[in-house]
Amino acid sequence: MSWADKLNGTRNQLRALNKTIPETTRAFGALGKSVKEGGVLDFKTKEFIALGIAVADRCEACIVLHIEALVRAGASREEIGDVLAMTIQMGGGPSMMYAAKALECYDEMTAG
C-alpha cells in the first residue's frame, strides 16, 4: 500500500470517527488548532515535533498526516532527516525503523 493510499484511508477513518463522536472530535480539533496557532514556535517547528513523536510512538497514520503538513509547510528532505536523526537518538532501534518509513513517505509525497 502506498503512502497516498494510507493518507486516504486515514482520512476516511477520521471522517467515520467524526460522524460517530462529533463533539469529541471537534474538541480535539479545537485543541490542535489552538496549539498550532498559539505560542512562540512556528507551525513548521511544531509539526517537526509532532513527526518525531509519531515516529517514536510508531504511528503510521500520524506519520503520513504530519509529513503531509510538513510538505505543505515547505520542509526540505534535509530538515526531515534532522528530525528523524533526533528521533532515532531518543528512541533507539524502533524509532530507526519508523524513521525509515517516514522518509519513504516524504519521498513518495514529494516525488510528483
Rank of each mutant, 00 (worst) to 15 (best):
G81Y: 01
A61V: 05
K33S: 13
K33Q: 15
A4L: 08
M86Y: 15
E68T: 15
L103A: 06
K6L: 00
K46N: 05
L14Q: 14
E108R: 01
N8D: 11
C105M: 03
K36D: 11
E23R: 12
I49T: 02
G52M: 08
N18V: 11
E47S: 05
A56W: 07
L70H: 08
E37K: 10
L84W: 11
A75Q: 12
M90D: 06
K46I: 01
F28M: 13
K101Y: 09
G39M: 00
V71Y: 13
A99S: 12
R77H: 14
K36R: 13
A102W: 03
R72Q: 14
E79V: 11
G38R: 08
E47Q: 01
A73T: 02
F48T: 04
L31M: 13
T10F: 08
T25R: 01
L17I: 03
D42V: 11
M97W: 01
S2K: 09
N8Q: 14
K36T: 11
T25F: 03
V40L: 04
A4I: 09
N18Y: 15
M86H: 14
A69T: 08
D82I: 08
D107T: 10
A75G: 08
T20L: 15
G39P: 00
D107S: 07
G29V: 11
A99E: 04
D107H: 04
G38Q: 12
Q13P: 03
I80R: 00
K46E: 02
K33D: 14
A56F: 05
T25G: 01
K19N: 15
E104N: 12
T87C: 04
R11S: 02
L7E: 07
A102D: 10
Y98V: 07
N12E: 15
L14H: 12
P94K: 05
A16S: 14
E78S: 04
H66E: 06
P22W: 06
F28Q: 06
V64Q: 03
